[in-house]
Design a protein around this nucleic acid. Structure first.
Lengths: 139, 139
DNA sequence: AATTTCGGTTACGAAAAGATAACTACTTTA
DNA sequence: TAAAGTAGTTATCTTTTCGTAACCGAAATT
């Protein structure tokens, strides 16, 4: 019902995709941690259930934002990573993050990020598989 | 429950704010149409109910993204507009829109935006953002 | 031999969100 | 006099979503 109203708008579709409660956080974790396995991802996203995590992952995969690599070993290993399109989102997420950081700093009218948890652990993230730096920093 | 997990992350808070079903669309309309009255806004967002629209508007206002100008005339006129912080989001929304547009074009592997509805009517938007008349009645 | 691990899926109940409609106050219009 | 319009609010009902728990197969571990 909600997706039938103005789904013809590309941005709205994208926004609608990114809109789910955990969606952005999952992308954020993948962005910061690099390729991550299901269980580890679940551990990284504190309160999420396997059901919702699977659901979001499937949605994201269907949208081409992440990839799913299934290693059919006996304890199966499923690794998720940002797809090229997910990588394209990095610039936007970074910009959004800087805006959010700035606003918070303005709200505090004082120190921006002193000992504050920044959610983005390190600028030098794990070069797990994608050594390609943010080449799509558009904004 | 959902907002207690990692609400300390500025970006997640912002994402969480932008996340609501109609939220982004409202900002988008305000961005494209300029200051808009409640009824007109409701007409611009096809399937929204007054309840949800009010709720989103209040939330957005509380976050400082939009302003609410209440003219206490007899048929009351309430006009909503992007606040400075809402304006700051324009770049991000534009980038996101261009990404969405590009992806859609890639999906079609052919013409990008021929006769497609673009959701962003005109780059030359209404300059009605003068802060002189927006008193911001504050809740 | 039984349990644990891994990456899920399924069913079920609870909770949250949303839709709908009625109602507010006041003026203008028919 | 009655209806419409403006900007909502409130209540109730329905829909959707979410969390929890159980379960899956097979191999490794205890």
């Amino acid at each position: 019902m909600r997706e039938a109203h103005h789904a013809e708008c590309p941005m709205d579709s994208l926004l609608r995709l990114l809109m789910g409660p955990w969606t952005s956080y999952i992308i954020w974790v993948l962005r910061n941690e690099g390729p991550t396995r299901f269980g580890e991802l679940k551990r990284k996203v504190p309160g999420i259930s396997a059901k919702v995590l699977t659901e979001r992952l499937r949605m994201l995969e269907g949208a081409g934002l992440i990839t799913r690599h299934h290693e059919p070993t006996i304890p199966p290993q499923v690794t998720y990573a940002l797809a090229p399109r997910g990588e394209e989102l990095r610039g936007i997420l970074d910009t959004l993050n800087s805006v959010a950081l700035r606003w918070r700093a303005e709200d505090q009218t004082q120190q921006a990020q002193s000992g504050e948890p920044t959610c983005v652990p390190a600028p030098a993230d794990k070069p797990a598989t994608s050594p390609a730096d943010s080449k799509t920093v558009s904004a």
